[in-house]
Computed example of a mutant assay.
Amino acid sequence: MKAGTDRNPRWRLLACLLPAAAFFAAFWLLPISRLLALPAHKGWATYFAVLTDTRYLQSMVNTVLLSVAVTAATLALGSAVGIYLARRDFPGKRVLLSLLTLPLSFPGVIIGFFVILLGGRQGLVADISAHLIDERITFAYGLLGLFLAYLYFSLPRAIATYAAAAGSMNPQLEEAARSLGASRLRVVRDVWIPELGPTTLACGAILFATSMGAFGTAFTLASKFEVIPITIYNEFTNYANFALAASLSIALGLVTWLVLFIARQAGANPAVR
């Protein structure tokens, strides 16, 4: 009886694990294995196409630089707004926070459409400039349009993250620093930055990864500035070049994974805190 009761929990555990293992194999392991093997059909040099072809390399550089700029701007603005909302209590605060985080419910295509309404050929800026200087100024379809769309898409995540992190901080730390005569700058340096350092690293890594892989917004706006998700889409859909699309996807995944790995390592380092 005792041996039978010992076996039953193991069989139950295996029975529960089998559906999860099947799902993992069908929807992650097999597609990833196929993706990694696909470029080899056209030769091993296909794996390095992003480094050997000028167009693909430029697209990757564009994506990385844009993602870094968006991440830096989002962290600066999101931390300022999130910390302010966490430290201040005023009428309508919850309504304001809900409005600031509303873009979280919008897909990238809708955000791209917003930027077109603002800076497109028939947008608000174009109409105003046509009346003022008799020339229609547009910025939606280039680098500035993509930057603003990515920033609009990323900012609510940073605001919500910093508001939650700053709201959970121990206020006695700041009070103790001020009682010892610390200036506002010293409090920021010795209290706020160490306390919010892990949040900044985690949030920055997520923002960077989101910007690297953003497709809907780029698909709507990237007609004059090519980024790697659009390059992959063109190779896959327009040219049916599956091997090259797989190679570019691997390169995109490696760059994003490397940044996430560095962020995890920095967050695990006690010196960062």
Rank of each mutant, 00 (worst) to 15 (best):
T256W: 05
T256G: 04
E195P: 05
I193N: 01
A177Y: 05
P198I: 06
A209S: 09
S211Q: 07
T256C: 00
R189W: 06
D190T: 13
R184I: 01
V187G: 02
W257A: 15
L254Q: 11
F208M: 09
A166F: 14
L185F: 07
R178N: 02
S211D: 04
L221P: 02
S183C: 00
V191T: 02
V191S: 03
F225E: 01
A218S: 10
R184P: 10
Y239Q: 14
L201C: 12
T200C: 14
A243K: 02
S249M: 05
Y233C: 05
Y233P: 00
S223H: 06
V227R: 01
G216H: 11
L252R: 04
G213M: 07
L248M: 14
R184Y: 03
V188P: 05
F236G: 09
C203K: 02
I206A: 06
W192K: 08
F242D: 01
F225Q: 02
N234R: 12
A202D: 13
F236M: 12
A205Q: 09
R189A: 14
A209V: 01
G213W: 04
S211F: 01
A176T: 10
S247W: 02
L201Q: 14
L252E: 04
A245K: 04
G197S: 14
L185M: 06
W192R: 06
S179P: 13
A164T: 09
T256Q: 00
R178T: 15
E226A: 12
I193R: 15
G216L: 03
G181M: 04
N170P: 14
L248Y: 00
F242V: 07
S249K: 00
V227W: 02
R189H: 09
E174P: 10
Q172A: 15
N170A: 10
A176G: 12
L173N: 05
F236T: 09
M212W: 12
T220D: 00
F225Y: 13
R186L: 13
A251D: 10
A163Y: 07
T220W: 01
I228Q: 08
A209K: 08
F219A: 10
S168W: 05
A222T: 07
M212V: 15
A163C: 15
P171T: 08
I228P: 00
K224C: 03
P194W: 12
L244P: 08
F242S: 08
T256V: 08
F219T: 01
V255I: 14
M169W: 06
G197V: 05
L173S: 10
R186K: 13
A205V: 02
F219N: 14
A166W: 13
I250F: 00
E174M: 12
N238V: 11
I232W: 02
E226P: 01
A205M: 04
Q172S: 12
L254Y: 13
A214K: 08
R184G: 05
A176C: 10
T210A: 14
V187T: 09
F225C: 02
Y233T: 00
A176E: 13
P171R: 14
S179C: 15
L201I: 08
P171Q: 12
G216F: 05
L221F: 07
R184N: 14
A209G: 03
A165F: 03
